[in-house]
Design a protein around this nucleic acid. Sequence first.
DNA 1: TCAAGCATTTATAACGTTATAAATGTTGTC
DNA 2: GACAACATTTATAACGTTATAAATGCTTGA
Lengths: 332, 332
Amino acid sequence: MPNTFHKPTQKDVAEVSGFAVTTVSRALADDPLIAEKTRKRIAQVAEELGYVPDRAAQRLRTGRTHVIALVLDPHGEILDFSGSMISGFAEVVRGTKYHITLTQHQTGEDPMDPIRHIVRNRLADGIVFARTEPDDPRVQYLMDAGFPFVTHGRTRMASHAWYDYDNEAFARIAVERLVAKGRSRLLIIPPLARYTFAEHMVSGFERAIAEHGVTGELPDGFDLNAPSDEIYSKLKTRLGDANRPDGLICPGEIAAISSLAAIEDAGLVLGTDIDVVAKQTSQVFDLHRPRIDTIHEDINAAGQTIARALLQEIDGAAPDTLQTLQHPRPGF
Amino acid sequence: MPNTFHKPTQKDVAEVSGFAVTTVSRALADDPLIAEKTRKRIAQVAEELGYVPDRAAQRLRTGRTHVIALVLDPHGEILDFSGSMISGFAEVVRGTKYHITLTQHQTGEDPMDPIRHIVRNRLADGIVFARTEPDDPRVQYLMDAGFPFVTHGRTRMASHAWYDYDNEAFARIAVERLVAKGRSRLLIIPPLARYTFAEHMVSGFERAIAEHGVTGELPDGFDLNAPSDEIYSKLKTRLGDANRPDGLICPGEIAAISSLAAIEDAGLVLGTDIDVVAKQTSQVFDLHRPRIDTIHEDINAAGQTIARALLQEIDGAAPDTLQTLQHPRPGF
DNA sequence: TCAAGCATTTATAACGTTATAAATGTTGTC
DNA sequence: GACAACATTTATAACGTTATAAATGCTTGA
């Protein structure tokens, strides 16, 4: 009889237990003013009645939403990125009193809009977003507003909570692996320059190149965010040159697959003419043939860490104590 | 000065416009009782002040949450499934007054729990979930409760809103393609039998097999949900047999990649000894070498369609008018 | 001119919770 | 036995909105 079901309120708990509504409220909030005996009795009655606090009422009264907002980028080419990240996030938030809401801004839109909307209308207690830029206006805005947030990616502003993958180390390790295989003319498919992580990755690449005395190339005309067929065709052309690269760094799986196609279609043989090191964020390359040398980035763990950091920040932790740099894990 | 910012309420709009709060409320709700002139004036003032209704207050008063709950399965092997689906969902919901919340149940847990929790505590106005079983208790519960929901996948219960991909057609087309290539000993990696879509796919497979007079095989000991290395090793063993299959149907990308590895490691040549048809839900096979024959399933479109259906159902549309069967689209 | 009828607006209460201030009971001290 | 001091409980109001019922002003017809 679900339609005759009446959701029990504090009033019901009060009537059954014989205490006032206020007392029930305080008891359930573990207010130390309430006598232990009373607290126990009220907790018992609440349990029996199946009382669950009404979020809307709590939210209206206190201003706290118990909501964490995930602001996603327009769905792009990063394979399974959002899915894994969300999954890690959900695992941590489950079991707390918080909920996750999702917002996705459209391609042409100002990424600032959803953030401002959430803050101004108190739609959440904290915000998470990814793909930061060095002078990210979202970060600046949230810091000014004193609003809890955690970013996936660093910025030039030092004292906020962030999680980042060490892309400088990624590039360095990738170069080292290729050099160890005897490669000396390396090419990296760079991320879009406006993202902070692109700077790290490129700087790691360039430093490692210099250290090992090999040549490094950042291609013109395409990047990690380009359509995969564009990466494919430009790379194929490049691989037709006499001075073609003999080592490729692909910081993404779709780019790696496009690269493998370009290599094959250019008539080159992987492992003989050229080698590839790719970043791996999913299972795609676990059993792939030809075998691909990969360096892992654990997106699920990122989601978990970010969620934990945000919950801590909402509970009052200082943002600059909530910074995690994740080191690359070697592939299989 | 974000901390001195006062979120404008109907009271503010009322004071500035000179009308009563009630009138403001009605005007903003487009109540026909309100004079057109008044409505316009109030709308103008609300706009100027940047008034946005307080969801918590609306929710407390009306019981409507303006929330749509996405209940996700534990993050599994389906590549990018959640990500694309969520993305399509978000695109549709953006611009409406609805929000999306995410819940994910853990592996060992009763999938019913989050659903019951949402319904009993009115945490949302509608629910979406995937991977239905023929006698899905979640569907039964929600129908009994009269709670709006849309499933990804059908059930035995006819009159609820659902979206489904025509997996019977998928299997049929896959068989036809392999037969057209001269293959006659086909093997399909079946989905877990408990899901409704497994029945459809298997029945499509078996019918097509019979029609074309070829042999069909559903392997024992592994399925689409098995760990990929298990699929790989069992398939490799099977491909070592004398009576090995010469055509493989892989209804998932990770399974397809594992299969390709098994084929290669068994010493067989794709296109000569054996052919593969795979279901494609991401970009992985767009530029893959070797080229893979795929049949598309557009997860993003699924998300969009499901979101639209749910919004309609919340607005009162009859559930049995909200059923979509998506036909397979040929791969590249 | 007055009442009836209509169009429009408004006062009041309520949703379920918690912050504030007030009230009650209990103990100890002189 | 009175009073202060404390521990504990409670009444009241408020968060911002909307449903209900009441009130206002204006038009119309006699």
